[in-house]
């Protein structure tokens, strides 16, 4: 039987004490254990940033890739072997900034991936610059007169691109987050969970307390996750109330179901057929 301890990594954790990531890590483990996934049955793909380091702090297969590119690497891995259970750890800078284009098109591509965006609304690893989701007017060492760019609304963007599973979690609510991760992994297709994650070192605006006062589970709002319009409204909400939970879910054929080769099984399992290749070449030499 798989237990939480199976996921314990001996590698030294490098996050700041009190980091919001310490809420996400156990939620991931809880979800994987609940899914009865052993560490060798899971592949984590991550980008760069504090979120990108996540795979080192669990015991499982991983590729900790380049800044912004995690989704592209994960997509390639799924094209090769769509039986893989792939979870992507990214951050707001990694996914919505550097990897913005990959975010957009990974949603359109609709491979069966689960994307966890550790969204702390700040660049942590590079020490406190604004990220695409930093609130307007917040001052940083670089945006010294306050952020002037409008914030990126990831859930609304994902919805507009037709994403079939769009959710928001909060690092301060592990149980809810673990359930969201499970639901996302069970969803066949691209699933996004934007996770509110306080940065205790560089973001003194969006703190644990700040989020705690505002988060509201959509389950308590009588929201129907099949209702796109209502989901879009909730996705744009940001301020006094911040909705969490599954905002939108609908079933649709994923990339694998639409590809004639992949329908027959993962590429990795295809045998090399020299005869077929030789026959094809022979034909080219005939009239």
């Amino acid at each position: 039987m798989v237990t939480i301890n199976d996921y314990t990594s001996n590698y030294e954790n490098q996050w700041c004490p009190g980091c919001g990531n310490f809420g996400i890590l156990p939620a991931m483990k809880m979800a994987f254990v609940a899914q009865k996934l052993a560490p060798h049955e899971l592949l984590l793909v991550s980008g760069i940033g504090q979120a990108g380091k996540t795979p080192h702090f669990l015991e499982c297969n991983f590729i900790h890739a380049l800044h912004g590119r995690a989704l592209a690497v994960a997509s390639g891995a799924k094209l090769a072997n769509h039986n893989l259970n792939v979870v992507v750890n990214s951050g707001d800078g990694d996914c919505y900034g550097e990897g913005g284009n990959h975010f957009i098109h990974a949603i359109r591509r609709n491979l069966d991936l689960t994307l966890l965006v550790h969204n702390n609304q700040i660049y942590g690893l590079t020490k406190g610059q604004a990220s695409p989701t930093t609130d307007k007017d917040m001052t940083t060492s670089i945006q010294s007169h306050g952020v002037s760019n409008r914030p990126f609304r990831p859930l609304a963007v994902a919805l507009s691109l037709g994403a079939g599973f769009v959710a928001r979690g909060f690092a301060g609510q592990k149980e809810q987050l673990a359930e969201l991760i499970q639901a996302a992994m069970n969803y066949r297709g691209f699933s996004l969970i934007d996770i509110l994650q306080p940065c205790v070192t560089f973001n003194h605006l969006n703190t644990f307390a700040w989020y705690k006062q505002r988060v509201v589970d959509v389950a308590t709002l009588n929201h129907d996750a099949r209702d796109f319009q209502s989901a879009m409204q909730l996705a744009m909400e940001w301020g006094e109330r911040i909705p969490t939970g599954i905002l939108y879910q609908h079933e649709e054929d994923d990339f694998t179901a639409l590809n004639p080769w992949l329908q027959q099984g993962p590429m990795l399992q295809r045998e090399y057929n020299a005869n077929a290749i030789n026959d094809y070449i022979d034909d080219l030499y005939r009239i």
Binding site: A65, R69, G76, N81, L84
Partner: peptide, 15 residues
Amino acid sequence: IAAVNMVIGANFAGC
């Protein structure tokens, strides 16, 4: 950028 990273991902997974 995506193309080369996809190819790396596919190779990493074994194809």
